[in-house]
């Protein structure tokens, strides 16, 4: 198990801040270099289940997991490197009407927590993201989500091998969940 040092935590934070700056600057092609080619990128649905009486009085009663799509249930997004690339590349086409004109975004990353895993050079990392999203003249929205990442060191550089984005909406009231979180 890899030891979690203050340097490592600082590296992960800097990695996330750099990632956020890239995405806000619309450098999506460069962003693709921050993910592994076997990346698993997932945005589950956050639905409202009927409370389970068997779980009452326990923390499982309010467990977030039971609100998320699982198994064969369709997530909002479940993507590999190919689909992420398609999104990244498409934004730069003249006739990509959801990106032209592009959204103005500002990402705020906080609550970074780095945890060890069994695999050498792999870390689990939690972070919160708040994304201010503004499109056209005044189509303004704020997305918030928790990110659960698996980060992997490849040739000494941190990369995202897995990302799960737990959004905080039941009904999506923003114009699109197509952005990179």
């Amino acid at each position: 198990m890899t030891e979690i040092t203050r340097d490592l935590i600082s590296d992960v934070e800097q990695f996330y801040f750099r990632e956020a700056r890239m995405l806000d600057n619309r450098e999506f092609q460069q962003w693709l270099r921050l993910v592994t080619t076997d990346v698993e990128y997932r945005v589950p649905v956050r639905y409202i289940p009927q409370p389970d009486p068997k779980k009452k009085e326990t923390e499982a009663f309010l467990g977030v997991e039971q609100e998320l799509s699982q198994g064969l249930e369709p997530d909002f997004r479940k993507e590999n490197f190919f689909i992420l690339s398609l999104r990244a590349m498409r934004a730069f086409k003249l006739n990509s009407w959801t990106d032209n004109p592009p959204a103005r975004t500002r990402r705020f990353i906080s609550n970074v927590e780095v945890l060890p895993t069994d695999q050498e050079g792999c870390y689990e990392a939690y972070s919160n993201t708040m994304i201010y999203y503004s499109r056209h003249q005044k189509d303004n929205h704020t997305f918030t989500a928790q990110r659960k990442d698996l980060l992997r060191l490849e040739k000494g550089e941190l990369k995202i091998a897995k990302r799960e984005v737990i959004i905080d909406w039941n009904i999506i009231t923003g114009p699109s969940l197509s952005i990179f979180y």
């Binding site: 689909i83 398609l86 498409r90 009407w97 959801t98 969940l177 197509s178």
Partner: peptide, 29 residues
């Protein structure tokens, strides 16, 4: 079969639903 359901499910969400590539353009229009 389950693996087909899994693949076709991804084919749905990649293009449609609130995060879908094509859906976003329709909603825009």
């Amino acid at each position: 079969p389950e693996h087909i359901k899994e693949k076709l499910k991804i084919h749905y969400t990649m293009m449609f639903g609130p995060g879908g590539l094509l859906e976003g353009e329709d909603a825009e229009a």
